[in-house]
Amino acid sequence: MSLTLQDIGRIANLARLELSTEQSERMRDQLNGFFDIVEQMKAVDTTGVEPLAHPTAVMEDVALRLRPDVASEPDRREANQRSAPAVERGLFLVPKVIE
């Protein structure tokens, strides 16, 4: 398995990153270098092994905690928007969204 410049372009677009040709080439080489060490995973027999999503599940059962349905957050719009790039009348502004 080896990633092509086309793959890099597709992934970058999915990730909303803009890479120059030269950046894409370096990215391709570095990722392919990484996936060489990933190859060894193939040899591991994982049939019937349950994926470990939450590490402490090894120690005890993990289950989602549920909180009471209480609306206790006050309106903190001003503080929450303090670091926003563009705000008008309390709305975040972005380039026109075309549906």
Binding site: M41, T46, V49, E50, P51, L52, P55
Partner: peptide, 11 residues
């Protein structure tokens, strides 16, 4: 998925 499975084996 494979990585998460091996993760369990490591644990």
């Amino acid at each position: 998925l494979k990585a998460q499975q091996i993760r369990r084996l490591i644990a």
